[in-house]
Write a protein that binds this DNA or RNA. Structure first.
Lengths: 197, 197, 197, 197
DNA sequence: CATGAATGAGTTTTCATTCAT
DNA sequence: GATGAATGAAAACTCATTCAT
């Protein structure tokens, strides 16, 4: 997407790069972008300080790389999940479930996304824009098929992003887990709102 | 709420305290928590470095003070707005409008809330918990009056928080402003979801 | 001795000066010269920061004043005690006892003397020189009267200072108290050394 | 003794560590613990500020390291010296001489020991406890062999520490040097006291 | 006499990044 | 490719002292 990482030319190099990347994900997840230090990442990766700069231009860049990668993975799982559905309602249900599963498995890492807004707003925006794009398209298609109301799909996409994010925040991150009823309620909200008339 | 600031005892002191607080709000809004330095805040306030520590224990504390204050103001405006409504639908509409107005007016500052999660998760959680409380109560009351469906009001509260936050993010912070149609669509979403019957 | 303090002209002023002086003694004793702050002293004295500078030129000066005063008191009690004795042996015994009593009562304050060496070596030296003077004279007199050996009384004076100081350090400050046997042994050492014939 | 320093892994690192340590000894000796700053130490060592923290956790730790090292050296020279003696009297004489030599050569550094009491009382106490231990043992052995009187060797040990310290203070630090007569008198005092029969 | 707000120089410490080996 | 010692700018914070009221 953006050429942020330096290229390894050997297999050994590629392996080192991976070690660093994984260590970074773990350390960033644990301490956040500002709380983490390059020293700590390299220590966790089991390489020397200088090695870090052989593969990444700097702390910022590896962080943004991680965010991009995370976005890609998240889009992958949600898209894959909803692709299996026959109806829009079913797609929404499966999509939300996949999202919550992802957030559950990547608790710490998911939270670092928010820090990205200050580190590089462009990357932050891209993260959510690309994610929203799937939602937008699904809504637009459903509308075309008469399965959903005729409303601006872009707005709807961000509404759904919001529902997912805040329900995950409240139940997954604060409470420890999200039960099936809460998940059901969230999906119901996305489909029928608060239930007015 | 939490005793985080030191006490001035004269009017002059109170005035200085205010100057510093306002400068901090401005600088934090512009550069974020980590990007801002105490030096910068005092420079913006027109006082000496040491003066800062006469009124606040440290950078972290003034930041959290600001977040608490922001939460209080935000709860104030949304509650005031929805109090004027006769029906739940109306209350939601007015509440969202008030929220968007607030976010519009406090763009920069509103964004620092997200940084708070890493600085002090307790304060971050309190910010949203207290906000959600109003929404929860409104939903519960509406349900009791037969105006809303019988669903867990806590989940609904966070769904609404999410809708507000992400629509503000997309339209207010990224696009520059949020038009009436988008606002209308968001409210409609909160009331009827994506329109699935 | 040295004109280090500023002069109060009224009775009220004299009272304030005293309050500050006493607070300083206590705070310095507790935290040491460097650990104590002027703010803390004034707080302990119940006066404003500025008031301090009405009576003392600075932190250093009040500290040295305190050291001088302490020396005067210590010389007073040891001299008074040994004046009551008929023989040199008796005078030594009473002098040491008085010294240990003083150290016992002024544990904390006594220890700040050592810090004085770095703050102002002149004052530190004066403290011990004046104290040694009494010992020196007593030894010289005893020699003249045939009660003590014919040795340089100046050296002897410092040996006795050393015995007192280190026994107090070991037993009073570290152990909590100095029993009569230890005191007796110390005195015996001063009179007969390690017991080599 | 206490793991206070960080580890260099190369010869170059070890060399730098030494440079910093030596600079610290010099600067602390000259200005004392509080008068010295890390900046000054690194400047004297010819390294950058940050380098200091590669080898020592902080100013306090390097200071305490220095005190421990000093104690070890001092114990070494006094023990070595007295080990050569046939009698207790001879051992005392040689031990005192070695002590005075050490103090003469390390004037400045020796004086920083006193500051240690406020910086870390434990380390201060250890310094003298370990030193006293040799004296105590020597006295106990001499008593067993009938060479010295039957008195508490612990008290005697501190008496001798005191004699050494204060005679060094008076003659070495204040006067510039300690002549043989004064040294002789001090030793005589340690052996026979003030000469009371 | 007394106050206490204000000052600003000075201190310790951190850490992303560089570079000789 | 890999190392890890070295850098130095920047940060948060303290505190003796001044001075307008």
């Amino acid at each position: 997407m953006t050429a942020r990482s330096l290229s390894p030319s050997t297999a050994r190099g590629e392996a080192t790069r991976q070690k660093v990347l994984e260590a970074a994900e773990q350390v960033f997840g644990e301490k956040g972008y500002h709380g983490a230090s390059v020293t700590e990442i390299t220590r966790a990766a089991g390489v020397a300080q200088g090695t870090f700069y052989l593969y990444f231009p700097g702390k910022k860049e590896i962080f943004l790389d991680l965010v991009d990668a995370l976005g890609e993975r998240l889009r992958g799982v949600t898209l894959d999940a909803s692709a299996k559905a026959a109806t829009y309602a079913e797609a929404q249900r499966l999509g939300f479930s996949a999202f919550f599963d992802f957030a559950r498995t990547h608790r710490h890492v998911y939270r670092i996304i928010q820090e990205c807004d200050r580190v590089d707003p462009i990357t932050y925006r891209r993260f959510y824009s690309l994610l929203a794009e799937s939602y937008r398209r699904a809504q637009a298609d459903a509308t075309a098929r008469g399965e959903a109301a005729e409303v601006d799909p872009e707005v709807v996409a961000y509404c759904m992003l919001g529902v997912g994010h805040f329900v995950a925040l409240r139940y997954l991150f604060w409470d420890g887990d999200l039960g099936p009823e809460a998940e059901e309620t969230a999906i119901r909200f996305a489909q029928k709102g608060v239930g007015l008339d």
